[in-house]
Every structure is written in structure tokens, then in C-alpha cells.
Computed example of a mutant assay.
Amino acid sequence: MEERHKNIKPTYDLVVKKVFRNEEVALQFVKDIFELPAKSAKLIEGNQIFTANSNVESDFNIAVDILVELDNHAQVIIEVQLAKQVFFINRIWAYLCKQVNDNIERLKQNEEEQLAIYKKLPPVYVAAIVDQNYFEGDDAISTFLIKEETRNTELKMYVDNDTKEMPLLKIVFLELKKYKENLNNDYKKIRWLEFFGNKQYTSEPDDVLVQADNLLNLRNWTKEEKRMYDEMTRQQDHYWASLTYAQEEGIRQGIEQGIERGIGLGIEKGRAAGREEGIEQGIEQGRISVIVNLVKEGIITKEMGAQKLNLSEQEFETYL
């Protein structure tokens, strides 16, 4: 399917933040994805821009990607992930818990609110927009709630000044690569897969979605925003190119080394045997290079890298 925008990727950090700075767009996204009754939304966090190859540890210390607060005080964290991370769900949980704790600390600062902390404590939800698949099956949108194990009763809470109960926890994953036409979901949700996946809309977009789409038009951007986006694109392209090069270079070197070893077995026979051995070694060397790069980029841990290569952590250290 042809992309709506040729020169922009809607899931890059700078672009996502530009989109959700528009509070009308943020409100519609939250209402569509979480089915929450809300009349207004404001952006609490989302101005800091992360570079394409940001370090995981520093990202954790900075903040969440986007934090939106609704007029009923409910809060929604919006996280976007391009590369698959083994501990991404753990990371989401850490962000969510940290936000709840921050809310408690904020309420403690006001003496009057100290007596009503639990009454005023808002629910926190998470929307994860991911460019890689995390779950089995074909469902592009996965919603997780807290429910009683046998009765399937959902755990809910009251929010101050709101007579309706709200879900205690709600985490929604939008897996962009699982998008296909005629998905069996509410189109109000599907259109956000189309928006962030840069797909053509299968239904006429309403005014809010048109407004969101206009934010992706580079002609409407400032020079500074264009410069930052160009830099982010170069970094991201370099990152993926370096992984591809590492694998290809490992295969090439392995073939050459294998052929050299094979010469000792005889010229013709040696070349055939050496090439076969070299390809195998090259693939393995390329695999090692990719895993090492993933660890250096902070996408997986050293422990996970060692496990994937069937090495001890001490043996794996020699490659870093």
C-alpha cells in the first residue's frame, strides 16, 4: 500500500511530539483508543526530543515520551518504540509506576490534599505505538486490563468529582506492522494505525485527523524542526545501516578466512569446503556483530546478548 507521506516517518520522536502538542488531536486519540469520556486534554510532558539512538538508561532518567492529562484528571502515557526491546513491557511498567508515585508526591505537597490523596489520585494508562510485533496472533490492537481471574470482573476506581468508575489500569498496544485492510476493529481505532503507519486512509478522515495529517506536512514546519528531523533521520539510517554492514562484513570475512583454510585441503576441494565453512563462519560472525551492536546501543542487555550467542558473560565481554 502506498504511503501517505513520502518524506516523513510519523513514528519518529520529533514527529510524534509535534502531533500530540496539538491538544485537540491528543484528546481525540485518547478518546478513540481508550474509550474514555473526556472533553479536554492538555500536554503535561512531551517537549523534550530524544535523538534516534538515545541511550536507554538516560531515556529512563529523562521522562516518558508523551503525558496527556484529561479534564477528569486521568493521565495517559504515550510511548512509541521503533526497534524491538526485550524489556520494553518492563519499561512501560516502570514508567507507569513512576508516574503514580509522582502523583502521590505531588498531592503530599498540599496539606489539604494530604487527607484526600487516595480520593484525588488519578488513574494512569499507557498507549504503546510499536513498529515491531510483541504478541502472537494477527490482532493489531491489544488492550490489557486488570480482571478477576474466574469471574472476569474488571477492577475499577473512582476519580474525584466523577461519579463513574474508571478502569484501574489500561494498557493498549498498537502494533503497526500487523495493519491490513478490513481489520475487525472499530475504525476510530484503526485510523490511528493508518495514521502512524503512514498508510492510506480507508475511510474519509474527519477534521481532527485532517488536522493531525497537516502536522506531517514538512512545508508547515519551521527551519529548526526540519533541521532536527533531518538529523534524526540521518542518525536512524546510520544505525540500521551499521547493523546491516556488520552482518554483511562478517559474512564476507568469514568466506575469505574459510577459503584460506580450505587451501590446505587442496585447491579445488579446498575452495569448495572452505567456502562452505566460510559462509557458516561468516553468518555466525555477522550474527555476533549484530548482537554486539544491539548491546552497545542499549537495546538488549549483556546478559541477553550472551544467552543469544550461548556464551558466558565473561566470554561475551571479549567482543565488546
Rank of each mutant, 00 (worst) to 15 (best):
F144M: 08
E194M: 09
R151C: 05
I190G: 03
D138K: 09
T153S: 08
P123M: 10
D138F: 00
V126S: 14
W192L: 00
G197S: 05
V124F: 09
D186K: 06
G137L: 04
S203I: 12
E181H: 07
K199C: 04
L209M: 14
D131S: 12
A116V: 09
Q132V: 13
T150N: 14
K177E: 07
Y201C: 06
Y158G: 07
N214G: 10
N152T: 08
T163L: 15
E148C: 08
K119I: 12
L176N: 02
L193F: 00
W192A: 00
P122M: 08
D131T: 05
A127Y: 04
Y179D: 01
A212H: 05
F173G: 02
K178H: 04
T163N: 15
E194S: 07
L107Y: 09
Q109C: 14
F135S: 07
K180G: 01
E111D: 14
F173V: 01
F196R: 04
Q132P: 10
S203L: 12
R151T: 13
T153E: 10
V130N: 00
L155A: 15
Q211R: 12
I129F: 04
G137P: 06
K170S: 10
M157L: 13
V126I: 11
L107K: 07
R191D: 05
G137W: 02
V159G: 11
K189H: 01
K108Y: 15
E194V: 12
L115F: 09
I190M: 03
V172D: 04
T202H: 02
L174W: 03
Y187I: 14
